[in-house]
Design a protein around this nucleic acid. Sequence first.
DNA 1: ATCTTAACCTGGAGGC
DNA 2: TGCCTCCAGGTTAAGA
Length: 284
Amino acid sequence: MPELPEVETTRRKIEPLLAGRTILSLTHDGSPRYRDTHLAHGRRVSGLSRRGKYLMLHLAAAEAAEGDPHDLELIVHLGMTGGFRLEEGPHTRVTLTTDAGQLYFNDPRRFGKMAVVPAGEYGGMPTLLGMGPEPLSDEFREEEFARLAAQAGAVKPWLLSQKPVSGVGNIYADESLWRARIHPAQTRLAREEAGRLYHAIREVMHEAVEAGGSSLGDGMGNYRQHDGEAGAFQGRHAVYGQTGKPCPRCGTPIKKIVLGQRGTHFCPECQPLREGETSGDVQR
DNA sequence: ATCTTAACCTGGAGGC
DNA sequence: TGCCTCCAGGTTAAGA
């Protein structure tokens, strides 16, 4: 569920509830997927940031009398189905209590993770350590992206690795590749293809953030804001979840294949595979 | 080193 | 209604 636009929307929505507040407790069932959360107790939240699909709560150093002089971070990954809620529910996994109230971490599938670490110490989180540039920042450069893309394997799994650029997941990879008119299994992108993809990623991410992310209608994993509000970008999906429907550009039915173990949607007419490539395993 | 695969979990949808 | 299979927004350890 949560890719960069959903995580960024979450950050913007819960920051006013948490910034400047003191964490009184962070409680859960003891699962090792929530590491060292007790270290957050008594700390003040100085701000929230985001890196790729990871959310960071910055925890200011406690008063000198309390010992540990270092700033800490509470790193949160929403996994496939994680999200914050104002109200407790059947899938509440973590309860965050501040001096202003409570916020609940809802995560039916339990793929979400939290960890309190010394600020900036991301050992044990290889994806975060090897994360590429933020797609909407100046650090994301077309020339460098094109250079890497020229040597890459199948483009979609490559994007999902988080290495060439951060925050792209299954939905926005499919949508970006459709806009750039590139087949998801294409390898070694030509310079022009990489340029189109670079701009498509920036456009899609920008529009999706502005729309508040995508909320899919599949029940359990349905992404929602903390107050239950839905995103609006799902209404603009050209290919994701549109199997069999006409391509908005040419009318050809959208096709679904499995690539790198992920459902992959594309237009077989607009996104042709260049010579010498395989098209992945056709599903069904 | 890099790429592929299975595993981690839960529950909703659809077929019979 | 019940049972079964398939599927899902992500990451990562292990294997080739």
